[in-house]
Design a protein around this nucleic acid. Sequence first.
RNA 1: GCCGCCGUAGCAUAGUCUGGUUUUAUGCAGCGGUUUCGUAAACCGCAGAUCGUGGGUUCAAAUCCCACCGGCGGCUCCA
Length: 636
Amino acid sequence: MADIELTLPDNSKLKVKKGSKGIDAAKKIGKKLAEDALAIEVDGKLQGLDFKLEENTKIKIITKNSKDGLEVLRHSASHVMAEAVKELWPNVKLGIGPAIEDGFYYDFFKKEPFTQEDLKKIEEKMKEIIKGNKEFKKKEMNKGEARKILQEKGEKFKIELLNELEDGKISFFESGKFMDLCKGPHAKKTGEIKAFKLLSTGGAYWKGDEKNEMLQRVYGTAFFKEKDLEEFLKQKEEAEKRDHRKIGKELDLFSINEIVGSGFILWHPKGTALRNQIMKFDEQEHLKRGYEFVTTPHLFKADTWKTSGHYNYYKENMYFLEIDKQEYGVKPMNCPAHIMIYKSNQHSYRELPIKYFEFGTVYRYEKSGVLGGLFRVRGFTQDDAHIFCSLEQLKEEIKKVIEFCLHVFKVFGFNEVAVKLSTKPEKAIGTKEQWDKAETALKTALEESKIEFEVDEGEGVFYGPKIDFKVKDSIKREWQLSTIQVDFNLPERFDATYIGNDSKKHRAVMIHRAIFGSLERFIGILIEHFEGKFPLWLSPVQFKILAVGEKFEEYAEQVNKKLLEEGFRTELDLRAETVSYKIREGQMQKIPYIIVVGEREKQNNTLTVRDRTGQQKTFSLEEFIKEKKKEVIEKK
RNA sequence: GCCGCCGUAGCAUAGUCUGGUUUUAUGCAGCGGUUUCGUAAACCGCAGAUCGUGGGUUCAAAUCCCACCGGCGGCUCCA
């Protein structure tokens, strides 16, 4: 038989016999590769190893230890889980069972939800199946045959999926007694699944639509090596240790009170100290960049929201009240207020851009089930600014905002940033020309800022394109932070204009941008990022001062007074407790420096300072102040 | 909002399944005293809880049932 030629990802060519399969190609490339092979990617599509190869295709062998390999493994694990569940509860109907970021899940239709004990049972059953080391066999048939099989089994959800598939060959995967509609690919045998663990359960709507039935989802994860699984579980534990709700309580930063209401944050003195430092820093940075500060009310007459469109499109998320037969709405956004300020004067093109900044506290009604700690709340403060400019100025202004964001990330130690540009969605306002110009402006701004970014076609909001920034924290978790959005809608609705050099009125373009997004959420992220061990400039309490004995209390007081005068945040602890006790307490409060004074220090006018790692160092008072002031300025 | 789990002193837990000393226990924190101490917990004592709220079942409810409030994990949502 004649050879056919395939292209490998590195553009080298591979010749195999006509009619051969993916596994043959793998063997041809190398014995080791064939052993490790799990699946084959043909022209970007994952296929099983038994996939018949054709000429002029680009192939990639998916092996263990690759990201795609993990996906294949996890998808296989989800099948094994479904098999286990079917054996334990034969009447359960199957939903879908894909691999996801950290593992896999499978959705089942079952009256009673799964319990923790059920998870253990399923795990045991899965172990049996894996031990059996059965082959994943692919079976192909036409749609009619497939439907017949599914109808016999009564798999109504699978039939729904089948109906959406194109006519042609429908594939099932079979392992032992279990068979499931599935395009694959899978591992060769169930025995490939070596390290797995079921993690949790939860309800999930069929096809993610809340109008549909609620299915029972089981989450799990799988790895090729036991070591990787352990690593994963350790990382999970690490994340739990950093939970901002736990640390927030321990460090007395904030609370949420049942009587006050869900989603409303009470900032305690220490939390406020932290928050104030962030705000102070942010204010300075805005001043440097030519923003003007404004202050606006929390409550507006409903007319404002009718003009802005929120009354029609955002009403379910807003708080309304009626006084003297007049309807008012609490602001969910600051934009209308800023536009009103802009509109209180006529503006020349020479004045543009005009940038208004406000720490604007907004209230949004969020469904009870979505609230959580500081991450999702009903009342929060945005570091919100609106830039009014001409379409021509857009690119330069966006560039400045990008620089601003990156600077802020760096200061807080977020060194990895992922950027996404979202373009015109199907439903959108504004002309095609406006959109094109704006999208080009955003794109060019990103390129000229030498930033790598992804384009998310059609994912913009209806009123304009946007750029989103995601950062990675100290344990590599991703958080969506900043957003820069162009808005054609509100300037139109509020008729925001400027006078151009042709002395005619022109529509202003508005940019919404927030760097932290919400201060509440940002602080939540910071708590987890730093594990509560904030750098000196942010620490609610910077120094804890204690004396070795009563005789040295006066000196401790002197030191404290001096540090307060120098603008530091201190805590003087003169309680009748032992030195060790107070140090332990300070350490648990994650205070950056604990200052101990006694005979030696009093004699020499010095301080002995213990840092968070337990290291001690002696300074003269002046020396210490100088060094710590530097540390605060450098924000290390 | 939906599915599930949970709610015991300021905090962290035990007791709840299988109702039964007048319902409670432990540690930390608090308060009173003693100790004045050199880098992660000195000692003794005291006080502190309508067991989330309301209703029901029962001779008897922290425990069983219902509703509500709140928290957590998911889903959905986050123009």
